[in-house]
Simulated scan of single mutants.
Amino acid sequence: MRFLHTSDWHLGRSLHRVSMLEAQAAFLDHLVATARAREVDAVLVAGDVYDRAVPPLAAVELFDRALHRLADAGVPTVMISGNHDSARRLGVGAGLIERAGIHLRTDPAGCATPVVLADAHGDVACYGLPYLEPVLVKDDFRVDKARHETVLAAAMEQVRADLAARPTSTRSVVLAHAFVGGGKASDSERDITVGGVAAVPAETFHGVDYVALGHLHGCQTITGRVRYSGSPLAYSFSEATHRKTTWLVELDAEGSVTAERIDCPVPRPLARLSGRLAELLEDPAHERHEDAFVEATLTDPVRPAEPMARLAARFPHVLSIVFAPERDPQDSAVSYAQRMRGRSDVEIAEDFVTHVRGGTGPDEDERTVLRAAFDEVRIAGAEAAG
């Protein structure tokens, strides 16, 4: 059986205030065309269909057109909600839509109810695990600790129990939206840390033939059976080096996996340039970036006048300027943005406590309080989004 694995469309998202709707429409055209040309048996969408819980109307219309086209092509689609989606909103009308071959899995209670597809070799059970916010679902899964690992492990126990009751020849696929250990993050993903822990081990998904992951924006292979498709478009300059693809996955009669990367259309490349303003404006090596979206890091010791306008004369699609003035090697000072880059909200708060105390950081009890406070804020946001 042949699947096309994708995720993290983030419909409605922009890149530094530049609308990506046209590029997202081009990707969805590519997705439908690929599904037809490669004769896939199903499309797997592993969450974050939208960029926010209440998406703009244009994004909803784009999503609606994509579903109609997949249904018209006769390609079954299995789709889960991600941490950016409102599960309830995305799941509205799921029962009716299912009649057209579009299977929305947004309710945690349905984790062990698969979409069963069939080919010449028998059945393939596709289980959709929507993003499971630990605090909101721990009681549903009867676990003591509100951790990603515990709720996903409980969901997978239900999956394995259902699979065990099926014929032994049944092959299996799981869709999940999570941060799995071994994955490499970018600046684009929303922090899902709970209690200081975000990642779950890949072993959580043992016992199934293929795991189609969403959440991380870089296409990557955790194991031969556990893969991220990544986002189809770059949503931050940290993704400038990503090769944006979908996975074309084949399950043979025994459940063995082969996978091929299918390149997504690139509306405009991203480039991260660094140097003094005069160098960026004059260096012929940068000619190839003149049509790219550009993030320029200026290293001039003194901030130059009108840098954005001057850069735009050569790079009309420059979107971002970062100032990182050259410093004396003896000077250990770095910018606030540099110090914060790659750190979670909790780590930033802990650094602040250390700063105001003159170098004494929070103890373990205080760290627990800080983590709980950030968890409560995130949960309140999730509940408000519905």
Rank of each mutant, 00 (worst) to 15 (best):
R268Y: 13
W9T: 08
D300V: 11
L117D: 01
G183D: 15
E279R: 04
P325H: 04
R2H: 10
H30G: 10
H121G: 06
A53P: 00
R243P: 00
H206G: 14
T360V: 14
H215L: 11
E149F: 00
S344H: 00
T354L: 07
V49C: 05
A198G: 05
L90G: 09
G82M: 15
S238P: 03
R288V: 14
A259S: 15
L70N: 08
D328C: 00
P269D: 08
P108V: 08
E39W: 00
R357S: 03
T241I: 04
V151F: 06
R88Y: 11
G95Q: 10
S238M: 06
R225E: 10
T368K: 09
L270H: 07
H84D: 14
S332G: 08
L21Q: 07
P56T: 01
G128Y: 02
A46Y: 05
T193Q: 11
L62T: 13
P307F: 11
D375R: 05
V173A: 06
T34H: 05
R99P: 00
V257W: 13
A25M: 09
F315E: 03
T246D: 13
A94D: 13
A125W: 00
A234M: 12
G218L: 12
M156I: 15
D162G: 04
A125G: 02
P232G: 08
V377G: 03
A178Q: 09
L104D: 08
E376H: 02
R367F: 03
C126E: 05
G358W: 06
V211A: 14
R327S: 10
S229T: 08
E22T: 11
A94K: 15
A333M: 01
D85T: 14
R288P: 01
M340N: 03
S256P: 04
S14Y: 06
A46F: 03
S19E: 11
L281P: 01
P134M: 06
V78E: 13
A178L: 09
P130S: 10
A94W: 11
A176D: 07
R160L: 15
A212R: 05
G183P: 11
A154R: 13
V143C: 05
R343F: 00
S169T: 15
E282Y: 06
H217R: 10
T34K: 10
P267I: 02
H30A: 15
R147M: 13
A155G: 14
A285K: 12
E203F: 01
D365T: 11
R160H: 12
E282W: 07
T241W: 03
L21V: 10
G386H: 09
V356N: 06
A33M: 05
Y131M: 02
V115E: 11
A155H: 10
S236E: 08
E260P: 12
D345S: 08
A33E: 15
A385Q: 04
E250M: 09
R190T: 12
R69G: 06
L280S: 07
E157N: 15
D375Q: 08
P325Q: 09
T168E: 14
L44C: 07
S188W: 08
S344N: 01
C111G: 06
